[in-house]
Design a binder for these strands. Structure first.
Lengths: 213, 213, 213, 213
DNA sequence: AATGAATGAGGTTTCATTCAT
DNA sequence: TATGAATGAAACCTCATTCAT
């Protein structure tokens, strides 16, 4: 493999980049382990093998490095994998693919999704961020539902916005309960069987929208 | 000096009872205002008009007084109102009544429900508590779904436990988004119209379980 | 000796008073030793034999405890001793008495006067305070000069305000140089001979205002 | 490798000289703006548009660059202008000229004079420096007074050293109050009228030494 | 010499908890 | 039990100084 490693770029910039990356990686680990509230800058720096002071060369505080961590997660969440696009013309297949992709992405980043949830309850700025994401998610689903209604493929009686709220909630919360709370308590070992959960959710979507008739 | 134990031991109890109550009430206010993490014992005592030291005569710490606050809320959440029982034989009506009751209770205690959510992300013990509640909620709904399936009133293909997980999630998260996040963003002013939300949720339940056929 | 030690006053208030006093006394020592800028809250608390945290039960910060120290000094500076009033009708004797009293008070609190000077260069609030004191001092001397001018006892050509500025400056700075800088460098051991300094200053006042003619 | 010391060593000197000058100029600005204590090496380097590390190529620390700044001021303070020498034989005219020159020089560098005052309260080395200057100033004035006394032009009763202390103090402190504290508080706008202040000071000198008789 | 990131000692402040009265 | 000051463990953040490039 050929890399541009030889390029000298700028003198000390190498250390800087390395340290910044080390801090973000360490922060991710510490946040996952201790939660946002209990995580200490000290620990993040230690974990990164970096002096405390160096932290402040790169981030203003806990908030900022958390944002950096979430930015990384963001990307991971946004790569739905090829399945979604390959779904072809069948609307049910599209939903099934989207649901499975969502669950898989959620499972991959479960700890950090839970974290964002926590941070949103504690920090005003992240509350806002999470709100915007939720809104975007709801809007997208509402659009999809309206499209199906217009095509005569979904229950016309439903208020698309409220249905989107409800079904989006079903998705996100189910994933949260399944992957963060660890297992569906009192039920089957859900996390072990992501496909069955995805199937059920898809069937519920389809039923709920009355796409079958 | 010798006193007769029977009578004079009570007088101080008046102060004690009063202070305890004042602390719980103050704690509720402070928790709602500042959230669990930021709430300080100091503030709770101040808000209650009680010396800091007195706090520890009644509670071991923040955790314990929070439990006391939640115990109060518990009762409010558990009084479903008469509607539910009066629903008679119609299963759809039962679901509709239960859903409305749930939303109303949630709305009444939205701040504290959000709080419990927050605390669960921060405190191991409350995580457990919340888990148990969630499990109970899921179990109850799973039982109901199975009953309907057995009666031929619900989609037999559905895994009752997973369906319960999904539909229960839909309920709790929708309520959270609507009443805690303030308004369904990008949609109609949901909180203003609890009845429409309840109707939509009920319709989705009914559709999802295919109770209409 | 009889004291009111027996008076119980309020329960724990005794400790509080004692600690506050200990902190102020300790602060005075630390400030005199290290100067305002280098003095550390830590050292003040240690020197007072009090926990760091207790400092903040009594003062908001370094600024505030410094103000408390200066308030004590204030009183000492304001007790001119009996000499001043006993001066009788002779204006020269009044000036002589006032000058001596000023020098003695200054010498007694030399370290802290120097300190105030330092703090004024560093802290906006104290700059203001010092300014007001200086203004009061100038105004008082300007009034005295005008009185003498009106009585035909002082050079009518002099601008009373500017003369006050000049002569007041002469007093305060001479005291500073003599008692703070330690000794009049290149001259006689001034601090050892406060009376000769007072005599010279008085003679200069009298000459400068032409009170002798 | 052996190099000829004469020529090739200079090329880099261009950067060096430029940076050193930039740092001194920046330091002056920062010191005037923030005072010695609050001024940060960081800010000086930033203000000079130079890397932090470069600072230490030229100076050992804040102390040293402050000395460099003061060395510049020194020169400005020491150029009395031609007026002084032109005063001719009249002693009063000499004093008047010297006083005006002093006030003008002080006003020109008021900020930095105040700064030196501040630094002297904080830093042992500069305390010493300031002391020496003061001593030199006092000694010069004491010599002048003795000369006048010997010539029968000044009050023989005065202790020349103490009189020098007093009158020198009058000059320096009046200038400080007028130009640093901003205005003679409670009096006329002194800084606006440097000539009247100079006249008054001169008249007070003349009177104080009884040069008129 | 210039660069600019790394280092880490150091001081402030907060607040849960204790404890003598 | 109430009181409220004392306690002291944390944790944060700053900034002078170093150092590899």
């Amino acid at each position: 493999m050929v890399t541009t490693d030889t390029a000298p770029s700028r003198p000390r910039r190498a250390d800087a980049t390395r340290n910044r990356a080390a801090l973000v990686a360490a922060a991710r680990r510490v946040f996952e382990r201790d939660g946002y509230v209990r995580a200490r800058i000290t620990d993040i720096a230690d974990e990164a093998g970096v002096a405390h002071g160096s932290f402040y060369s790169h981030f203003e505080g806990k908030q900022e490095i958390f944002a950096a961590v979430m930015a990384e997660v963001e990307e991971e969440m946004l790569h739905p994998g090829p399945a979604l696009t390959a779904a072809g013309g069948d609307p049910v297949a599209v939903i099934a693919a989207a649901n499975l992709a969502y669950l898989e992405a959620y499972r991959r980043n479960a700890r950090l999704m839970a974290l964002l949830e926590q941070v949103a309850t504690v920090d005003e700025d992240f509350r806002e961020l999470r709100l915007q994401r939720t809104a975007a998610f709801l809007a997208r689903n509402a659009r999809a539902i309206r499209r199906l209604q217009r095509a005569g493929l979904a229950d016309q009686e439903l208020d698309a916005d409220l249905a989107s709220l409800a079904l989006s909630s079903m998705m996100s919360r189910s994933a949260y309960v399944a992957f963060v709370l660890g297992r569906a308590p009192g039920g089957p070992g859900v996390p072990a069987d992501i496909d069955r959960l995805a199937d059920t959710l898809t069937r519920l979507w389809v039923n709920a929208l009355r796409m079958t008739e």
